[in-house]
Structures are given as structure tokens and as C-alpha cells.
Design a protein around this nucleic acid. Sequence first.
DNA 1: GGCACCAAATTGGTTGGGCCATTGAACCAC
DNA 2: GTGGTTCAATGGCCCAACCAATTTGGTGCC
Lengths: 252, 252
Amino acid sequence: MSNPRRSLVNPIDMSPIQAIARDDAVLNALVAFVRQEAVRPGDKLPTERILADLLKVSRNTVREALTRWEGLGLVERRQGSGTYLKAEVSPDMLHMPLTLPGGQDFDSLMQTLEIRRALEAEAAALCARRATSESLAAIASKLEVMERVFHETNGASADADWEFHQAIYKASGNMLFEQIIAAMHGIFHRFWEHPLGVRDFGHASFPYHRTMYERIAARDAEGARGEALKLIATVEADLKRGAANLKLAGTT
Amino acid sequence: MSNPRRSLVNPIDMSPIQAIARDDAVLNALVAFVRQEAVRPGDKLPTERILADLLKVSRNTVREALTRWEGLGLVERRQGSGTYLKAEVSPDMLHMPLTLPGGQDFDSLMQTLEIRRALEAEAAALCARRATSESLAAIASKLEVMERVFHETNGASADADWEFHQAIYKASGNMLFEQIIAAMHGIFHRFWEHPLGVRDFGHASFPYHRTMYERIAARDAEGARGEALKLIATVEADLKRGAANLKLAGTT
DNA sequence: GGCACCAAATTGGTTGGGCCATTGAACCAC
DNA sequence: GTGGTTCAATGGCCCAACCAATTTGGTGCC
């Protein structure tokens, strides 16, 4: 036979690289494609069948790669239509999926609010320092829409409200604020599906949107932070009110 | 963007009709299985073939579901061995995939620091209000270890430093702080593998650990917040110093 | 018994084929 | 135009293999 001790001493032949990562290669190719073709968020990506043929891999492999991106919120798939880019991608992007327990109970909601209070205040302060005239105009526009919808619908301005806040996060120059707070906001939306007796939830926060905007427009960072804190405080009060209702209803 | 006329006419809100998602059902079933069988992180999950047969779906569908979880870091697959749980799962988990472009440059690190500044300050304030005597003792213990290691090793107390901060997050009574800041911390450390010329990085923050602890022990929420801000400020200064070095080195 | 070695069973990774449900656009009747 | 119909494109799912890495268990040699 051959040398029986070969396994103990391995002088050369160390090429462990490139051993795997078939579907990772698909994603890298997709990143290259996006850059080369200047695909913008919202644009359509090549179909799975075309990608499979182009990259000489099975369509199933393409699907698993896209499934990973879908889980990370980078693409959106619409059956019968196509796959669309949802966020910017670049070769050296850092994906950091964070999963944390997000219950539906009062304590969990209160915890998300504590996170939001910290971030909302900081975002408002940063926004006051960094907002460009364009982003200020965008914020003002969202504010006006929100106020108009609020009066027209007698307070049902949740969507416009959220867009106003998002404009502030964008203007803060740090997209992490928007991403993290968006996750917290998602919990609240699942919460509102189960209505809990607080009819005017969020109404008390209404006036602080304009005062916060005014402090931002005045480049008053600490003032903006203060108004943001007042705004969150009203939401916390509403939440506690709802928790009280829930406790009453639960003990019947 | 939004439809400005919708509010005038029809306030009906249809359900977000969505027949089913086959692979979502697989994940839900897996969550149920994990809870029922008390699977702990590190344990092995059923094989793909068994799951497919058990849930009466194709193995391909099982794979797509697991691929999503793998992308979120919830499971780890080892070819030839099996699929292993990597983190706790619960029916109402909050997935927060964060993506920041160019995770290695100065701007990205600065963004993570801005998040950490907001959260660190709030956590310190909450900790000052809520810490029990036990958690206070734990924080003091971590502080002493850190200070001792700092002097013994001439400043190489990064791990002990981190444990001190974690003790504060735990004492804040809101685990979201620890988890989110841990993610930010992870980015920082990954970057620190590439040393960048700042030899005494983090040394300036040393004295503020004790002052922050003293404000917490004194139940002085705003004082603790202030010390936390000072601490982060020194890290920001160090980072800017490193960025200056990097720019010099990069333009040669 | 203890150890190195080898071969089969197990398990995730990939392939290529196929069918179904949904979408959207072109087309047609009214 | 309006409203339906047809039809190709596309993602969702299934099937039955085979490949590659790992584990496992046995075998034979000290």
C-alpha cells in the first residue's frame, strides 16, 4: 500500500478554501449584479430561473440564497410578479440579525418603550444638529400631513404619525435609529390589533410633534430632546391606562 | 406615497388577507416542538427528512424555513451532523435585522457609538432607580475586578470592562438594553481585530466607571446618566483619534 | 483492553425536473 | 371606456435522486 502515516503529517495540500459556500456565492454574485446594473431599492431583480441559468446553479440554490436575504429584509418576493430589492446592499455590508423576546404583555411593551425613549430623544437631538434644509422640509411636510389627517379623521393618524418620526430618524444621519425603532414600533402594531379599551390612544402625544419640530428647526438639540421625552411620556401614560383597563377586564 | 383621499370616503380596513405561508407554518411548528420537547440552545433538532415527513411537507420547504432561521442566527447547520439550536426561540420573537453599509469604516463605528450613547445613558439612569442591593453588589464586584485587572495588566481590561457594563444592563431590569448594546459592542470588537494605531484605546474611560457606579449606588439617576455620557465621550474621542491615524496610513 | 484504521449509515447540500397559484398585461366583448 | 378572459411569466412547493461531510460502529492489530 501507500504510506500509512500520511494522515499524521500533512506537509502540503492544504486547500480548505472554496470547499463550500455555494449559495453564498450566489449572494455575492447578486451584490455584484446590483452594483453593476445600479439596481435601486424597489427595483426588480432577475427572476430565479434566470439567475439559476446565469450562475450555473440549481434554481433551488438560488431560492435558498434569496430566502436568506428575504429573512434579513433585503428583498421582497411577490408571487407571480417577481423579486424586488428592499434595501441598499454593498459588498462590505454588515448584517446583524438580532432576535429578542417580544411578548405581548404590558411589561414587554413597556420595555420597548424604554428603548424607544432613549433612541427617540437622541435621534431628535442629532437631527437638530445635522438636518439639512431638504430634510427639514421633508419633516415639515410630514408634520403637516399628520396634523391634517389628525383633524380630518378625528385622531386616526397613526400612519402619518409614523412617517413623521421616520423622517426625523432619516435626518439624524444614522439609519440605525430607524431600524431599531422600527422593530419596536412593530411590536406596538401587533399590540393595537388587540384593542384594549383605550380609545384615544396616542392622542395626547399630538401637540408635541409640532413642538419637537420647532425645536429641531431652531437647531436646539436639547430642546428637541426634551420635547421627544415629553412625547414618549404621553405614550407611556396611555399604555399604563390600557394596562389598567386590561387588568379590570381580565379579572371578570 | 400615501393616498390622501382614502380618508374622505371609506374607512373600512380589510384584513391583510394572506392565505397561508407554508414555510412559516413549518417555523411555527418548530417553535412548538422546541417548547414541547424543551430543546435547549446547543441541542440537536430533528433532521430535515424527519421534519418533512412529520409535517407532511417537502424537505425543500423545511430547508427554506431553516435557511431563514440560519440567516437570523437561530440555528446552525453542520453537514453530516445535523441542525442545532443556537438561541432561545419563542412564539412572539422580535426579529430585528440590522444592516449598516460598510461595517468597517469610521462612520459605521461612529453610528454604533451613537446608539450606544443613547442606550448606555438610559440604562444607567434606570439602573440607578431600580437596582436591588444584590445587583448593586454584583456591579461593585465587577468594578473591583476591572480596576484590579486594569492596574495589573496596564490597561488590558477589556473583558472585565464589558462585564461591568453588562451587570449594569441586567440591573436596569430591561434585557433589551443588554442585547442591543451587545450587538453594537460586537461590531466594535470585530473592528478592533484590525489594530489601528491607538495604543491606549479606552484608557480614558477608566475613571468614569467608578464615578458612574457611585452615582448609581447613590440612586442618582441623572448623575449616573451624566457619567455614562462622559464615559462614552472618551470612547468617541479615542475613535476619532484612531480615524485620524487611519486616514494618515491610508493615504500613503 | 486499547488503539488505529476503515466502511457503512446518517445528514445537510445540491441538482434538475415538474406542477400549482398568483400576478399582470394583452386582448376581446359589451 | 368598462369589465371580463386568456395567457405567459413568476414565485411557491413538491419529488426523487445524488454528492459531500460527518458520525458511527466494527475490525484487526498490538
